[in-house]
């Protein structure tokens, strides 16, 4: 979302798994076009970084190409722009979202009708 009257861009996300693999999906899948379309319009303001005013997003080609595809500079940019979160609550910190969803389905199956098909599906989930 844009804040400060459109002067700054804030990106907030919750995701499953590791940070590194999450960013790989951004730079390798079709979503890289969306990432480039958004973040190529941004920069990180820093205090005197190598005599420059700030750090730019990796250069894009034809506006949507390359950019986040350059994995190393992209990850470096993402890490530098990160803000530490003071508080974040997770009910099941040791489970991924996929596991949480599967467990919920398992619970529903246990307390649901127990015909042959439902029982078969239940056993397959275990």
């Amino acid at each position: 979302m844009l804040i400060d009257g459109g002067k700054r861009l804030m990106f907030v996300t919750n995701y499953s798994g590791a940070w590194d693999s999450y960013l790989n999906e951004f730079s390798e899948l079709a979503s890289v076009i969306g990432v480039n379309l958004i973040w190529t319009n941004t920069y990180i303001a820093t205090d005197e970084f190598e005599g420059k005013d700030g750090v730019r997003f990796p250069n894009t080609e034809l506006y949507t190409g390359r950019g986040a595809r350059a994995t190393l500079p992209f990850k470096a940019y993402v890490r530098r722009s990160q803000l530490e979160t003071l508080a974040w609550y997770s009910a099941y910190p040791d489970l991924s979202v996929v596991n949480v969803i599967e467990n919920a389905k398992l619970r529903d199956a246990v307390f649901g009708p127990t015909d042959v098909v439902a029982l078969d599906l239940l056993l397959k989930r275990l």
């Binding site: 861009l9 804030m10 920069y43 099941y92 910190p93 040791d94």
Partner: peptide, 9 residues
Amino acid sequence: CQNHYISLT
């Protein structure tokens, strides 16, 4: 397993 991230540019 679960992560949170905020970026400000």
